[in-house]
């Protein structure tokens, strides 16, 4: 609805929009600012805004004192590992449902979606006890598997909505031109499918990175990702504001940046294609 507005109106809207945008993102901005302060400046009253001695000491402290890199690496393994595993399982399924739909396809898709509705807490007890008896509590393999299962419905759905937009006729045209199945897949389908797969990968890495039910309940130290690392600041340790801020900034920065690139996919992925 980009209607003509006068410059005056536009300036007014600009001020309002920027004001609200800054207000909403203020907790993030404040966290990032605080991460560069000393502990004393961080709790100074009245609060200090920009004119303080910027320091990287908190980042150094968090890295040296707390094994931050291990948590970070666990987050990467869990988020990326579960997504890649999910893609490997989901691509064939989505592919066949998009290109050879049968009368059951809709039911299968709806059923998959329905598994996503099961609240995690409903199966906490058996999953916890099952993993414990298998000696898999606090292991990355357990979290990769569970996160993959959690996100599999979304992965299948997203891929399905992307694949469905690839015109089937182009395959026939390639076949007419004498392409065999292998060449068809390599030269015709893959280039068209890659953007959809990349979007799916991006959104699901974000979702798995931020997941904080299973990661908190099934890990203690070895497999604990950043969600659990930050949760450990809920003890009085969290009152070291500058360090909490530095740890938080490092935990959210990669996903914030990925997230900015995935706005469109976010809508499609989280509404199961209902809003585009």
């Amino acid at each position: 609805m980009a209607r003509k507005t006068t410059t005056g109106q536009r300036a007014l809207i600009t001020v309002a929009a920027w004001g609200i945008g800054l207000l909403i993102s203020f907790p993030i901005i404040w966290t990032i600012l605080t991460s560069f302060k000393t502990e004393a400046t961080a709790i100074a009253s009245p609060p200090v805004w920009f004119n303080f001695d910027w320091t990287l000491q908190n980042y150094i402290d968090v890295n040296t004192r707390s094994d931050y890199l291990r948590y970070f690496w666990n987050s990467v393994v869990i988020a990326v590992g579960s997504t890649l595993l999910g893609l490997a399982v989901a691509i064939p399924a989505a592919w066949s449902m998009a290109f050879q739909p049968t009368k059951n396809t809709k039911n299968v898709l709806m059923w998959m979606l329905s598994t996503k509705m099961m609240p995690a807490v409903g199966v906490l007890v058996p999953v916890y006890l099952g993993l414990r008896s298998m000696g898999l509590l606090d292991t990355r393999i357990a979290l990769v598997t569970i996160m993959m299962l959690m996100n599999l419905p979304i992965i299948v759905w997203m891929l399905f909505t992307y694949f469905r937009e690839i015109p089937g006729e182009i395959l026939e045209a390639a076949r007419m031109d004498g392409a065999n199945l292998r060449n068809e897949i390599i030269y015709v389908l893959t280039p068209m499918a890659v953007p959809g797969i990349a979007s799916t990968l991006l959104l699901n890495v974000i979702l798995a990175w931020n997941e904080a039910f299973w990661t908190l309940n099934l890990t203690t130290t070895n497999a604990a990702p950043l969600t659990a690392f930050i949760a450990s600041f809920s003890s009085p340790q969290g009152l070291f504001y500058a360090k909490l801020s530095a740890a938080s900034t490092m935990a959210i920065a990669p996903i914030l940046i990925l997230g900015w690139f995935s706005q469109k996919q976010l809508v499609r992925g989280l509404t199961f294609g209902a809003v585009k």
Partner: peptide, 17 residues
Amino acid sequence: SPFFVMPTVSALVWKNM
């Protein structure tokens, strides 16, 4: 942006800061 902040971070930032 707030949507991409992991729940434990947002909760602790709100709680403490």
